[in-house]
Amino acid sequence: MNIGFRENMTVEFKSDLKKLSDDVIIESVVAFANTDGGKFFLGVEDNGDITGLHPSHKDPSKLAAFIANKTIPPVAVQTELMDADDVKYLIVTVSKYTAIVAASNGKVLRRRIKLDGEPENIPMYPYEMNTRLSSLRMLDYSAQPVPEAVYSDLDPVEREHLRNIIQNYHGEKNLLDLDDTELDLALRLAVEQNGTFVPTYCGMLLIGRRERLSTLVPTAEAAFQELQGTDVA
């Protein structure tokens, strides 16, 4: 008997005829939690054929407890034992988590679609973790310090221009009473690290020196195109 649909970003099938490795189960749960959540079908082949569970996996509550014990933070899954013509399989439902989830062995994974259209679980690299947290609104990327930047990379002329904007557009007047460093810290244009001040991405984009901005944040560029109908003016 076939389950009637295919694997995708939120659906994964795993055969359990030879007892699927515990590590593979945990890795699949972690990848779902770090992406958009989904359903993990244990006892189903890649082509959708339902072939059944190994005896050690026929207790849904035991498997759910095992998953919680092997994930950090503990992932609470829903497990449902299904029966198709006396062949049992298990559906493990994983929610999208608002935190980075790891296996207890330290592995952090996510799901993606390969070029052939099939899904896979792959490592989540450190730079992707910031992107993930930012998408979950748990990290303000603009407030992060810029690697290799120094405080002098902020342009005094641009800072004075910023003060003029605050003055002319009736911004928070108390900001004008602050000295340059206090202003930068108040607006999170810079942060203190190990006793020194380091520009943030926000600071570099707003008041960074042009030549240093092109070096430190090379993708910080905007282009405008004026159209008349479909013609470029």
Score class of each variant (00 low, 15 high):
132 R>N: 06
92 V>S: 05
94 V>P: 03
134 S>T: 15
94 V>I: 13
138 M>E: 14
130 N>M: 11
102 A>N: 07
135 S>N: 15
127 Y>H: 15
92 V>Y: 00
117 G>L: 00
119 P>A: 03
105 N>K: 03
128 E>L: 04
96 K>P: 09
124 M>C: 02
91 I>A: 08
125 Y>H: 13
140 D>S: 14
107 K>I: 10
118 E>V: 08
98 T>M: 13
121 N>Y: 03
94 V>L: 03
139 L>H: 15
130 N>A: 10
128 E>A: 01
140 D>N: 15
132 R>C: 01
98 T>E: 15
105 N>W: 03
90 L>Y: 02
100 I>S: 00
124 M>D: 03
119 P>V: 03
140 D>V: 09
128 E>W: 03
124 M>A: 04
99 A>P: 03
111 R>L: 08
91 I>F: 01
129 M>T: 04
99 A>R: 08
114 K>F: 04
136 L>S: 07
93 T>I: 01
94 V>Y: 02
141 Y>M: 14
90 L>M: 08
103 A>L: 02
121 N>P: 07
129 M>R: 06
90 L>S: 02
134 S>Q: 13
121 N>I: 05
127 Y>A: 10
117 G>F: 05
128 E>P: 05
118 E>F: 12
115 L>S: 05
114 K>I: 01
107 K>P: 02
117 G>W: 01
126 P>Y: 12
90 L>I: 03
99 A>F: 06
141 Y>D: 10
102 A>L: 06
110 R>K: 15
106 G>T: 10
99 A>Y: 05
109 L>S: 06
93 T>Q: 02
140 D>Y: 09
125 Y>F: 14
102 A>V: 01
138 M>Q: 15
99 A>K: 07
105 N>T: 07
138 M>P: 06
122 I>Q: 07
115 L>F: 01
137 R>Y: 11
134 S>L: 07
125 Y>A: 09
96 K>V: 06
106 G>D: 10
124 M>Y: 06
136 L>C: 05
137 R>F: 13
136 L>D: 12
122 I>P: 02
102 A>C: 08
104 S>Q: 11
118 E>Q: 14
116 D>P: 05
115 L>V: 05
139 L>C: 13
131 T>C: 00
107 K>A: 14
127 Y>N: 14
140 D>E: 14
101 V>P: 10
93 T>D: 00
123 P>I: 07
123 P>L: 08
106 G>K: 09
110 R>C: 12
111 R>E: 08
123 P>D: 12
108 V>G: 01
